[in-house]
């Protein structure tokens, strides 16, 4: 008998405790990418954009106290679990799972292929402690660990703003974090892998976007599309000054496209892209 490639929601549910202190759980609700709108309406598009497989929602209730809700997502891969976690990075590190934030009653974390949201409908000292305890228990129950996307290794460390790195696939999510264009001028589709990072230097904040396409022709097409729509057809991508006085430049390398937005000077954009190219070369040499 062949093994299923996607663990079922029952396995995911088994990682969630049935009680949280004196709070008792209600019946689980289970959704997939086709039914998630029944649970969170259009907001489900965020999770669909990261290729979600299942969502197990478990509500904990105690009379007279705020409910606590666990939303446990099987994202199908560690890369997408990490990616959906990076969609909202506001909050303090809670040191749970492989990356976490806590803010105003909401704990978010990822571990292996799973993304977890543990939420108290009202934050009190008691519910905050329970939310964090639930998170620790769930993280401990998930046996594996996952790897962050390899694309992150192409981000130069110099000037990188910690906590502002996003991984995603489509242009709607890119626009959410950094508006580029209403149309998908970088031809991300839903299959590209992309990482967006913020950098800070004496010239202010700039952005670096690195996209990995299916193959080199796809990357070349994306570069040409971006040049045509954004850089007045400058296919060399050496750098153009925008109305804000900042510089945009891009390079295509194999199946990768790297774009610098809002660099303080043409030289600063070139410096960042050179650093990316060195990291690409290092990856190829297996460093």
């Amino acid at each position: 008998m062949s093994q299923p490639t996607v663990p079922g929601p029952r396995l995911l549910a088994s990682y969630i405790p049935v009680s949280a202190g004196p709070w008792l759980s209600e019946a689980d609700q289970v959704f997939d990418a086709g039914t998630i709108f029944d649970y969170i309406d259009g907001a489900g598009e965020v999770y669909r954009s990261y290729n979600m497989k299942h969502l197990v929602a478990r509500r904990f209730h105690k009379d007279g106290r705020p409910d606590i809700v666990v939303d446990a997502f099987d994202m199908g891969s560690a890369a997408d679990a990490f990616g959906v976690f990076t969609h909202d990075l506001d909050g303090a590190d809670a040191a749970i799972g492989q990356g976490s934030t806590y803010r105003a009653g909401l704990l978010s974390f990822w571990k292996d292929r799973y993304f977890l949201s543990v939420y108290a409908e009202e934050e009190t000292a008691e519910t905050k402690a329970l939310v964090l305890e639930l998170g620790r228990m769930i993280a401990a129950a998930i046996p594996g660990a996952g790897e962050t996307p390899g694309l992150l290794r192409l981000l130069p460390e110099e000037g990188l703003e910690a906590g502002r790195v996003r991984f995603f696939h489509n242009h709607s999510v890119l626009n959410y974090h950094f508006y580029v264009a209403d149309a998908d001028i970088l031809r991300l589709g839903q299959k590209a892998d992309a990482v967006l990072a913020a950098y800070r230097d004496s010239g202010g904040r700039s952005r670096l976007l690195v996209v990995s396409y299916a193959d080199a022709p796809a990357a070349a097409l994306a570069g040409a599309s971006f040049a045509g729509a954004y850089l007045a057809g400058d296919r060399r991508g050496a750098g153009q000054k925008t109305a804000s006085g900042k510089w945009t430049a891009f390079r295509v390398r194999g199946r990768l496209v790297a774009v610098v937005f809002d660099a303080s000077s043409e030289a600063a954009a070139r410096y960042r892209l050179d650093a990316v190219e060195r990291l690409i070369d290092g990856e190829k040499r297996g460093e």
Partner: peptide, 14 residues
């Protein structure tokens, strides 16, 4: 027609 960040910046500067 495609609206890009550059268009946004031109308008924003106003």
């Amino acid at each position: 027609r495609t609206i890009t960040r550059r268009d946004f910046l031109k308008v924003a500067s106003a």
